[in-house]
Amino acid sequence: MSQSVFSIAFGVGTRNREGQWLEVLFPRPLLRPSAVFINRIKDILGYTGGNQVIDFNFSIASDLARALKYISPEQSALLVRLAESHKPTVACILEHDTPPATVPGAYLKLQLISHRLCKPHEINLTDLFNVLPNVAWTNRGAVDIEEVAALQLEERIKGRMLEVFSVDKLPKLTDYVVPKGIHIADAARVRLGAYVGEGTVVLHEGSINFNAGTHGSSTIDGYIASGVVVGADSTLQGGCSMASSGGQPLVSVGHHCVINSHADVGISLGNRNTIEAGLHLTADTTVTVVNKAKQTIKVVAASELALLDDLSFYRNTETGTVECLNTAE
């Protein structure tokens, strides 16, 4: 067994009637725990190395809490609470950052991002959706799709309603993590696995997918797709979207950018960039670079202007061509 471990977490979750995991909450995931920590818990859990998911009962939880009492008081306190659980409890240990192979492993990785322990695209989420089950998210928690009808009938017989909020592979962020210093107007529009930086304001039309997010102090009223990271003090107005395109695995938005309403951007932007309302800008969009006298300097693909600072992208009202002006010159 390696002396180093990528991540470990203790959690509580939901299984279906066949014992298959549907979801797991990891309140205090750890990134790169110390060798002392791992040595204290490995024999209690029977951990022998590699990436493992290990169920434990109240007795083992109590033993773990005692073993960690002085070297990790926060984890010890969590385990004391988990020992009281009537729901399945589990330890997920990831020795290596390999593609997720289990539901608990996938949920641990998503929560590492949402707890701001890892940033988008710093962690391997390859084939994530092949691992996660499609789940009915209800007022009774996660329910297997095949078990919804029976539960609906059971709730009606008892004089209650089963409310199904969504049917999706991913839940909303705030059912698992409420990051410090944020504002989210509609929690259903931000998925678990989003990285929401401190100071971010997500307005009613704002949406952040998993493995995407903001560095902080940004106002989001548009859509941030998976693979996009928005810099601080930027604004995405209503109806606009940021999405990876042209084969780019990650699209970033620099600081102090303004992407106006209903714009669609698929290239990485430098600092202090502005995108005109309604402009559709992908990696292969033809852009005419002009000076302040509106004279053509060059014609390039938009991808060649990625990550450059102080650019304003807009459509020429007379010719319909997409133009770009360096506002700092």
Rank of each mutant, 00 (worst) to 15 (best):
S241M: 13
R191E: 13
S166Y: 05
I275R: 02
L170F: 02
K169R: 12
A243R: 14
I208P: 01
V178D: 10
H262C: 13
G206C: 05
E198R: 15
Y176S: 07
E154N: 07
S218Q: 04
V289F: 03
K169T: 09
K172E: 13
V177L: 05
H183N: 11
S244L: 11
R272A: 08
I224T: 06
T282F: 11
R160A: 14
R160I: 02
M242F: 13
V258N: 11
G197P: 01
I275F: 01
R191H: 15
V287K: 12
N211C: 04
D175P: 07
S217I: 04
G246A: 04
T200W: 06
V230P: 00
D168V: 09
V167M: 11
A194Q: 13
P171K: 13
A225Y: 10
A212K: 08
G254F: 00
S234C: 08
S245A: 13
A283S: 14
I182N: 05
D264N: 14
E154G: 01
E198G: 11
V167I: 15
I182Q: 01
V265W: 03
D264M: 07
G213I: 13
V196F: 02
K180N: 04
H280M: 11
V253H: 01
C240T: 15
C257M: 08
A225M: 06
I157R: 12
V202L: 02
Q237W: 07
A212S: 12
G216P: 00
R272D: 11
L173G: 09
G238K: 08
I224G: 03
F210E: 08
P249R: 08
H204G: 07
V201W: 10
R272M: 07
G181P: 10
T282Q: 11
G254V: 00
H215W: 13
D221S: 14
S261D: 03
Q237H: 10
C240E: 08
L236E: 07
V202A: 03
V251H: 00
N209V: 00
K169C: 05
G227K: 12
I220K: 09
V253M: 02
S226I: 07
G216V: 04
R156I: 15
V287W: 06
S166E: 12
I220G: 10
T286H: 04
D264Q: 13
